[in-house]
Design a protein around this nucleic acid. Structure first.
Lengths: 238, 238
DNA sequence: AATCAAAACTGACAAAAGTCATCTTTTTCG
DNA sequence: CGAAAAAGATGACTTTTGTCAGTTTTGATT
């Protein structure tokens, strides 16, 4: 599987508006642009591995990537799923640390690599950009705190419902009275997001389907009744 | 319960060396020092509440504070326990967000409050300090990722053992062949750290005690056999 | 189209952990 | 000091979830 390069100017990137690079001044933008390398990845390829050192920042231009940790028994826990516009691997980069997770392509992806030096240069010279990055990191931390509490005290059923709603928010394609989650997840991956066994996800999904909360469309899930799903997630009391 | 003020110059603070303020230039240091308000809190008092807006940064000078989230049923999950030298509430401050957790005093505490403006001023003027703060935040994020995976896939027994070892690392007082955890935690708080029911913690602790892994000293726990505890935590295979 | 492998699914069962009720011990505070 | 409250402990029981074993379906490949 040879790595296929491609090239697109950051200023012309479709996802610039969703990215932290948005609003960068021309000088900084070209610094990033001139040093980046863009590569196309196929499903299943790895972007980086837990335990290795980051040498730069990945910026998603297309596709989906899962970032996950493996435990001793080889069980996966998916920390998040990156979509176009997202940065990848900046946590380890900013804390001068090893990667604490592995990144693998879920759907064929186009990803630009920005060398550490260029990224840090812009970060140092541009306090506004620095401020935005800090804000983004802290925001993500807030989300993780939320997840921690959820994992600690919610049942698998509640967590699955909550995660389906979350996926709907992030990857949802609005239809008439229903929303298609534009993400072809295997049951196994969904289990790794929720933090449970594959069989349990299968059973619960088919319950949700029987109850008319969701429907299956190929490998994708359509949310039919978000309100009832929220009730299952224990987000609504009534 | 009236709030009791106290005063101590940052430069003379015993915990400066453990703090992110360490190494600050005299100008920035005095900016922080001149605007801070230091207050003594009693066990059980709250420092800040989930859902409110931060107006500044708390810097611990003494005591212990738990930062936790309450779920719908009122069950607590403790995100971390702050000790002298630690910053408190900077996540919400930096992401311009509400507090996503509540902070309550576990052991009588002395805490200095630095107004938002002063903190941001130093942050803006001092890129080295900014860099260190970012590094600290990202480091903490790495720890939270670890916790997430642990919570998702480890048993309560493993998590309790792992958390006892963690507490030993952070609050441990080395003795001869054993370590006293210098933190008077109730069984309930320990359960909120591990993410389980109080009864389960009680049962497991008494098993650990029977097996000679730990001993109780008043409200505190002494780790007798860290190696066996690590085995229980599934950190060592053999 | 036939074959193979992976993914999805199902059922039976066991283990883990939560809940509830009750009792004892410790702590707090008037 | 003594009463009341809080924390700790224990047993019985239920529920949830994981595991294992096996079957069916789907999808990819030749």
């Amino acid at each position: 599987m040879a790595k296929v390069e491609f090239n697109i100017a950051c200023t012309l990137c479709d996802h610039l508006k969703d990215s932290l690079f948005n609003g960068l001044n021309p000088e900084d933008m070209s610094r990033i642009n001139n040093h980046k390398t863009c590569i196309q990845y196929k499903k299943g390829q790895n972007i980086f591995y837990e335990g290795t050192r980051p040498t730069g920042l990945y910026c998603m231009n297309g596709g989906k990537v899962k970032v996950y940790k493996n435990n001793v028994q080889g069980k996966e826990f998916i920390i998040y799923i990156a979509k176009p516009g997202d940065f990848l691997g900046y946590r380890a980069l900013l804390s001068e640390d090893f990667y604490k997770a592995t990144a693998t392509v879920l759907e064929d992806a186009k990803i630009c690599f920005i060398p550490k030096e260029s990224f840090f240069e812009v970060l140092q010279k541009n306090p506004v950009f620095m401020r935005r990055v800090v804000q983004a990191v802290c925001n993500e931390m807030g989300i993780m705190e939320e997840k921690l509490a959820e994992l600690a005290h919610k049942s698998v059923r509640e967590r699955l419902a909550a995660n389906l709603l979350m996926l709907k928010e992030t990857y949802g394609m609005e239809g008439e009275g229903s929303t298609l989650i534009e993400l072809a997840l295997s049951r196994e991956d969904l289990a790794s997001i929720v933090g449970t066994a594959t069989e349990t996800v299968i059973r619960l999904l088919s319950e949700f389907k029987t109850d008319g909360l969701i429907a299956f469309e190929g490998k994708k899930i359509r949310v039919l009744d978000a309100r009832k799903l929220a009730k299952q997630a224990d987000l609504i009391i009534a």
